[in-house]
Design a binder for these strands. Structure first.
Length: 509
RNA sequence: GGCGACGUAGCUCAGCUGGUUAGAGCGCUCGACUCAUAAUCGGGAGGUCGUGGGUUCGAGUCCCACCGUCGCUACCA
């Protein structure tokens, strides 16, 4: 059995959860669920990033302690994950003691290995970015992102010798296959590595809301370096060596394209500097845009997962349910490029794929079986024309996951649904007399539904489980193991079917 | 400025190392059916593959130029 460890970025608690975070988290969860189906020992991690000057100042403004400030926001992300039915195995907060310990341990190792040195840094600093800028990176002295004046700052900093790792990193990304998916982003990483790698400042003495530098307690680590280490913390770094050795060689980070530099350059360099030679793999996605613009500036920025899952009459949002919500983000945006978030597209996708094709198929098959096959379900036939379709659907689905392309995976799975609808139309079982012929057709359809239910479960876990029960299967879909469970003929027949309300009621556009 | 990506049916996109009449889903339209959530099934319309050159027996698929959109170039998923 192999292991699979997948992470989302940890979300900065300065922001409330929006559908951009939701997208990343849902995709990560679906990957984790797919790997569990494959029988991989899987761990999925998400969490919150809670240090830094922005937090410290927000707390001051609100008249609360930084800890109170982050406690109140972190829980919003935890709740959002729960609302979206995210089956994360851990939720890390960078303010936890275990993380403090891991950061200090890892940084101390880097220091002991001679890759950290002290120097002064003077420059124009944007508090919003928590970053220094040069004059020409500013717009009339104002930060281009936050449109506020950068402040002149001088501080004693510790620097990390990033420059020492250029060759090793280049070798890793050039020679190791499939490290960065989709492939296009690998080129971006190589592009970054071929520029001059300048040493980076990793500490701050100007604030206290951070993790103290163990060899100099006047400093705290700059929030980004503290944050990156969360992935190692949760895997047991410095605390549970067996766990770390188990998970770390198989870690995959899901990240947005904007944080490639941190994750693909700084982070692996830090690992190497600390003597850790297993480096992460990456799935990189683009942004969800609205009207071609990045989410944060637009009106729909305020759309929350909850509004789309539960519906919002005031705003005119339909209730997609947790599965409808998840399915859209897994099926519509191509994984990698930027794509426009479209409410209309979300409605269309839901009605077409979930209500009309899948939900309706389940409904009609159960009804016809009940009318034509007596009290119990028939078994599938070994030589069904759908058998080959099912095999193909499974193989294409699995291949798409392997390429880190959830939209293609679900498209492949849905081909089996469409073919099953065609199969029914071609055979017209509702016109047939009770007997072997109609039993064969309905057994085949039920078997196709069983397989689809498993393959679709990473996107629509709730509806998958309900479908599983309606076709008379016992236990949980998520306990099925691929590829065996996708093999044709496993549907037992002779079980009682359950009818019920539509799994996905059609939504009004 | 430098590096890079993209531009294919109304929409979202597939089209690997160049090879018969350019594909899918959705949408639209006509028809069929009635088991089903006005769902499903079949047919159809619709593209000079951004523009102009070039290489080749042959290019959406390689090369050049141009136009357009966008990203990265030290920190918003």
């Amino acid at each position: 059995m192999s292991t699979f460890y997948i992470t989302t970025p940890i979300y900065y608690v300065n922001d409330a959860p929006h559908i951009g975070h939701a997208y990343t988290t849902v995709v990560a969860d679906a990957f984790a669920r797919w790997h569990r189906l494959l029988g991989d020992d899987t761990m999925m991690l998400t969490g919150t990033d809670e240090h830094g000057l922005k937090i410290q100042r927000a707390a001051e403004e609100n008249g609360v302690s930084p800890q109170e400030q982050v406690d109140s926001t972190s829980v919003l992300f935890r709740d959002a994950a729960s609302l979206m039915n995210i089956a994360n195995d851990d939720f890390i907060r960078t303010t936890e003691p275990r993380h403090h310990a891991a950061v200090q341990e890892l940084m101390q190792r880097i220091y002991d290995n001679g890759y950290i040195y002290s120097d002064t840094y003077e420059g124009l600093y944007c508090v919003g970015c928590e970053a220094y800028y040069t004059e020409d990176e500013l717009n009339d002295g104002n930060c281009r992102i936050h449109d506020r004046p950068a402040e002149q700052m001088v501080e004693e900093n510790y620097f990390f010798k990033l420059s020492a790792f250029a060759d090793q990193l280049l070798e890793y990304f050039e020679q190791t296959d499939g490290v960065v998916k989709p492939d296009g982003y690998r080129n971006e990483v190589l592009g970054l590595l071929k520029q001059e790698l300048r040493d980076v400042s990793i500490s701050r003495s100007s604030l206290s809301w951070g993790i103290p530098v163990p060899w100099d307690d006047k400093h705290v680590f700059y929030v980004w370096y503290d944050a990156l280490i969360n992935y190692a913390t949760a895997a047991g770094f410095g605390a549970d060596d067996a766990a770390f050795e188990k998970w770390w060689p198989n870690v995959t980070h899901i990240i947005g394209k904007d944080i490639i530099r941190f994750h693909c350059v700084f982070w692996p360099a830090m690992l190497l500097a600390a003597g850790i030679t297993d480096l992460p793999k990456y799935y990189v996605h683009g942004w969800l845009l609205i009207g071609g613009e990045k989410m944060s500036k637009s009106k729909l920025n305020s759309v929350t997962p909850k509004q789309l899952i539960d519906g919002d009459d005031d705003q005119g949002f339909a209730a997609f349910g947790v599965d409808g919500f998840r399915y859209h983000f897994l099926r519509d945006p191509p994984f990698g490029p930027d794509s426009d978030f479209s409410y209309e597209q979300m409605i269309t996708r839901y009605n077409s794929d979930l209500a009309n094709q899948f939900g309706n198929l389940v409904q009609r098959v159960i009804t016809v079986t009940g009318k034509k096959c007596g009290d119990v379900s028939p078994a599938p036939s070994a030589d069904s024309p759908l058998a080959a379709v099912a095999t193909e659907a499974y193989e294409a689905t699995a291949a798409a996951w392997e390429r880190a392309q959830p939209p293609i995976a679900f498209d492949a799975t849905w081909r089996l649904i469409r073919e099953t609808n065609e199969y029914l139309a071609a055979n017209e079982p509702w016109k047939m007399e009770e007997g072997a012929d109609v039993d064969r057709v309905m057994g085949d359809a039920l078997e196709a539904i069983r397989i689809v239910t498993i393959l679709a479960s990473p996107a629509i876990p709730e509806a998958a489980q309900r479908t599983w029960e309606r076709i008379g299967m016992e236990g949980n879909v998520e306990d099925q193991r691929l590829p065996e469970a996708a093999g044709w003929g496993a549907y037992p027949g002779g079980v009682a079917l359950l009818s019920g309300d539509p799994l996905f009621p059609r939504l009004k556009g």
